[in-house]
């Protein structure tokens, strides 16, 4: 049990923990847009940690570079893919459970629209 093995084990099982939490979240959250959160975040960090642990285990060879390429590709592609699914669902009219809010970020005040029937794309008051 040297230091490298301990670092590898800690990173590997932390990554496994995040992946299992993401799976539980995908099963457990109540509506579609809430399920986006574990799918977009938990998986991304989980796979990054597992591949990082394998990079530590391997040392510096060509395999490490390939692992790094895979890790960076998934770090870029996974949020993009989940955003694409979310956009498809939004255009197809999947409704979240709560009402819509109008937020103006430049004046940094939250203007909650009192009528919940307001259409999503139309921004009037700001």
């Amino acid at each position: 049990m040297d230091v490298k093995t301990i670092i590898t084990a800690v990173l590997l099982f932390t990554g496994c923990f995040f992946i299992v939490v993401a799976a539980i979240g995908v099963v457990r959250f109540p509506d579609f847009f809430a399920r986006m959160h574990p799918a977009g975040k938990g998986d991304t960090l989980g796979q990054a940690l597992i591949l990082l642990s394998l990079m530590v285990y391997e040392g510096f060879t060509l395999i490490t570079v390939k692992l790094f390429i895979i890790m960076v590709f998934i770090l870029v592609a996974n949020p993009t893919g989940s955003h694409f699914i979310a956009k498809g669902a939004y255009v197809a009219g999947v409704k979240p459970t709560k009402a819509h809010e109008e937020v103006d970020i430049s004046s940094s005040e939250v203007a909650v629209s009192s009528t919940s029937k307001k259409h999503c794309g139309v921004d009037s008051a700001s």
């Binding site: 539980i24 109540p30 847009f33 809430a34 959160h37 979240p96 459970t97 709560k98 809010e101 999503c120």
Partner: peptide, 21 residues
Amino acid sequence: LVYLTLHPKMPIEPTMMTFKT
């Protein structure tokens, strides 16, 4: 996310919001 997922009551309040950029 771990806190939200493993909390027994799952304290989430989902909202959609729009902002200008």
